[in-house]
Amino acid sequence: MNTWRVLVVGCGNMGTAHAKAYQKMPETEVVGLVSRNPESRQRLAQILGEVPTFGDFETAMRTTRPDIVSINTYPETHADLAKKSLLAGKHVFVEKPLATTVEDARELVQMATKKGLKMAVGYILRVHPAWEKFVTRARQLGKPLVLRMNLNQQSFGKKWETHKALMKSMSPIVDCGVHYVDMMCLMTQSRPVSVNAIGARLTDEIAPDQYNYGQLQVRFEDGSVGWYEAGWGPMMSEEAFFIKDVIGPKGSVSISDRKTDSPNIE
């Protein structure tokens, strides 16, 4: 069996999760860890064992000679790291979003296709057992569908600092909204025809042109409609943070974050 050499770039929550998964798979070997933060890469190296660590991406690429580059860094760095990896002839796994602009995303897709390389984006809900069941149930409800989803997060301290760092390159509705709009497309099996959105800046701790609360509405060719809401910060309500409902002519199905006696997917 061939072993695929993986260079993990970014040693935060997602980088750690992916690195631990690669270590458990007999088909893959983690050959290096890259992070600008010495503490995070050393922490992960201790978890994995004797794995070389690097503070510089180019040095890591030359030294480890990977087959696959796993990109788990802040969103504004994704396109550049993916492009450098593809140009070096490496397969790419990249956390969402692939890029922060449509133009960069299209360029990367064209580059991977032209070079015959694999490039996968981390749409993890597609392979989550509960969400696979959710999609199957939703498709049984008839048409049109009404899709209601949100993920508000009341955040303080270190988590709020992480959210503010993320908002230097994208908003809350883009961060996880890519997952939920993807699920809406799978559930409806229809093409989006319009997207509208609103947003509000509820703190002076972020850039004047950024917002930490937003909501988007999507209309589909088959008449289905969906909305997604997301907000981050200490001011967010802890009572309205998790809604995952789909309603159709034949009934409804939901994912709940708590155990109940109902037949909802949990």
Score class of each variant (00 low, 15 high):
Phe57Pro: 02
Leu7Lys: 00
Tyr123Ala: 07
Phe156Ser: 11
Gln189Asp: 14
Glu95Pro: 05
Arg137Thr: 08
Cys11Ile: 11
Met149Gln: 10
Thr136Leu: 13
Arg41Pro: 07
Ala82Asp: 04
Gly15Lys: 03
Val135Arg: 07
Pro208Asp: 14
Gly177Phe: 01
Met119Asp: 09
Ala82Arg: 03
Val127Pro: 03
Val109Tyr: 13
Val135Pro: 05
His78Thr: 09
Arg258Tyr: 10
Pro144Ser: 02
Phe241Gln: 15
Phe57Ala: 10
Leu202His: 05
Phe241Ala: 15
Ser262Cys: 08
Ala79Ser: 14
Val218Gln: 04
Arg43His: 11
Thr53Arg: 08
Arg41Leu: 12
Lys159Val: 10
Lys250Cys: 01
Ala45Thr: 02
Glu238Pro: 14
Asn2Gly: 13
Met167Asp: 01
Leu81Gly: 05
Ile124Tyr: 15
Ala17Lys: 14
Leu117Asp: 07
Ala240Gln: 15
Ala105Tyr: 02
Pro52His: 07
Phe134Met: 02
Glu132Gly: 09
Arg191Ser: 12
Thr100Asn: 10
Asn13His: 13
Lys168Ser: 02
Arg139Trp: 04
Thr77Ile: 12
Glu95Asn: 09
Gly49His: 05
Gln217Glu: 08
Val195Pro: 09
Thr162Glu: 07
Val178Met: 12
Ala138Ile: 04
Met187Ala: 10
Ala207Gln: 13
Asp261Met: 15
Gly157Met: 03
Ala60Tyr: 01
Ala105Asn: 03
Glu95Asp: 13
Val31Trp: 01
Glu29Leu: 12
Arg191Val: 15
Asn212Leu: 00
Phe93Pro: 04
Lys168Ile: 00
Ala88Tyr: 07
His18Leu: 11
Val9Arg: 04
Arg219Phe: 06
Arg36Asp: 12
Ser171Thr: 08
Ser169Lys: 03
Val30Thr: 11
Ser256Gly: 15
Leu147Thr: 00
Thr59Tyr: 12
Gln210Trp: 07
Pro75His: 07
Pro192Met: 04
Thr73Cys: 09
Gly233Val: 03
Met183Asp: 06
Lys20Pro: 01
Gly177Gln: 04
Gln42Ser: 08
Arg106Phe: 07
Trp160Asn: 00
Gly12Trp: 06
Ile68Leu: 14
Gly122Val: 12
Thr260Cys: 11
Gly55Cys: 05
Arg106Ile: 10
Val253Ile: 12
Lys143Asn: 02
Ile124Arg: 14
Glu266Asn: 15
Met111Trp: 04
Pro75Asn: 04
Val225Glu: 13
Val34Trp: 02
Thr63Lys: 04
Lys168Leu: 05
Met111Val: 02
Leu108Ser: 01
Ala200Arg: 09
Ile206Asp: 07
Lys115Leu: 14
Asn72Pro: 09
Met187Ile: 08
Met170Tyr: 06
Arg5Met: 11
Asp56Thr: 10
Asp257Ala: 11
Met183Ala: 13
Thr136His: 13
Met235His: 15
Pro192Asn: 05
Asp175Cys: 12
Arg139Leu: 04
Ile47Pro: 06
Thr188Ser: 12
Asp261Trp: 14
Lys96Met: 04
Asp182Asn: 12
Thr100Arg: 10
Asn150Arg: 07
Glu221Val: 03
Ala130Tyr: 04
Val193Gly: 02
Asp56Ile: 13
Ser237Trp: 00
Gln189Cys: 08
Lys259Ser: 13
Val69Ala: 06
Val8Asn: 15
Thr113Val: 11
Arg191Asp: 12
Leu87Val: 11
Leu98Asp: 00
Gly55Trp: 00
Glu107Val: 09
Tyr123Ile: 07
